[in-house]
């Protein structure tokens, strides 16, 4: 049986396709709580949202940010610069919990609280109180405090609405193989909507970051035009900062069990922290705080699954680099002798 390949648009029109890519991205998650209809409550995903916030927030505005992840963190930085009184409410026991461990989170937390940003951990918003406009926020831990703006920055979920009611397989995101193809022939998905292969956990997961989206889109595009291309897989990686505090992390940063080795080094005078996570002879994750130069060398070790046993003892050195690599590895990379 020949299947008709059409997509239906919102206006009822049909468009036929040979190959289809679903790249609908993510949508901000807003929890179902009382008081969502009050004014001055918003998410922080689009440029328009940032602009409207900037025009509405005044110095000393009391802003509550729900979620101390990547989005909430950057929102806090911008709002603090506008002179707002910022409170971050985070359900986990630390901010940036997906990319930091306890120690690095405490360094970053100190920098924020030093600027007067308040951070409330292990709790979340229970109810938003006010008439037309938000006036107060009530937390699950029982606290109530005044607020004139609230930002939901809990994260994004794959925007899979468009495939609802179809036979396309969805877990958290649209499930794709290493060619970014869904369970249906000729239908592909990439980016924040897709649940693709993560090379570090050896299974599929949603990694809603730009570098992954780019690679997935490229892989999908190549396959869609008939050039066979399988992705090696992606893994989480983030570069983010708060003013003069820099954070670069990648891969598995909080190992789930004792089969991993962890090396750490901290310099509290410089507020720097370095953590490397190894599985056997491979680097599988790292955290760098402030001392972030040349971070990509570690990312490369993860990406290329380099056996680091010959230079494991040098990984933490301040001047760690290619000079500590075995000669043949160094030359193959620096002199373009690698066999592709």
């Amino acid at each position: 049986m020949r299947i008709k390949k059409n997509v239906m648009l919102e206006n009822g029109d049909f468009v036929s396709y040979d190959k289809l890519l679903i790249a609908t991205g993510g949508k901000p998650f807003v929890p179902p709580i009382n008081g969502l209809e009050k004014k001055n409550i918003q998410t922080f995903i689009k440029l328009d949202e940032a602009k409207s916030l900037k025009s509405s927030v005044k110095p000393n505005s009391k802003v509550v940010i729900v979620g101390g992840g990547l989005i909430g963190f950057k929102a806090a930085e911008g709002l603090h610069e506008l002179g707002a009184d910022v409170t971050i409410v985070e359900l986990a026991d630390r901010i940036l919990s997906t990319i930091l461990d306890n120690e690095s989170a405490s360094i970053v937390t100190k920098r924020l609280t030093g600027d007067g940003i308040k951070i409330k951990l292990n709790t979340t918003v229970d109810e938003i109180i006010g008439d037309d406009y938000i006036k107060e926020v009530h937390l699950k831990n029982g606290e109530t405090f005044p607020a004139d703006h609230l930002i939901f920055a809990i994260g994004v979920t794959p925007n899979t609405d468009v495939v609802k009611g179809t036979s396309i397989k969805v877990n958290r995101g649209i499930l794709v193989d290493k060619n970014m193809k869904t369970n249906l022939d000729d239908v592909y998905a990439a980016g924040d909507v897709a649940e693709g292969y993560d090379m570090l956990i050896d299974s599929n997961r949603v990694v809603p970051i730009w570098p992954s989206a780019y690679m997935q889109g490229e892989t999908a595009g190549l396959n869609m035009v008939g050039i066979e291309n399988a992705t090696k897989g992606t893994f989480p990686m983030n570069s983010i900062g708060y003013k003069d505090t820099y954070i670069i992390t990648a891969g598995i940063i909080n190992p789930p069990d004792s089969s991993y080795d962890v090396i750490t080094k901290a310099d509290y005078d410089k507020n720097s922290y370095k953590k490397i996570v190894l599985k056997g002879n491979n680097v599988v994750g790292f955290i760098l705080i402030n001392d972030v130069d040349r971070a990509g060398i570690y990312t490369g070790l993860i990406r290329d699954r380099i056996d680091v046993s010959p230079f494991k003892d040098h990984l933490m050195k301040d001047d760690f680099g290619y000079v500590y690599f075995p000669k043949d590895l160094r030359k193959s990379k620096m002199l373009d002798l690698e066999v592709h």
Partner: peptide
Amino acid sequence: CWTCVLVCGFGAI
């Protein structure tokens, strides 16, 4: 944003 620093395997940025 230093995302290039994060991904450059040569640490050349």
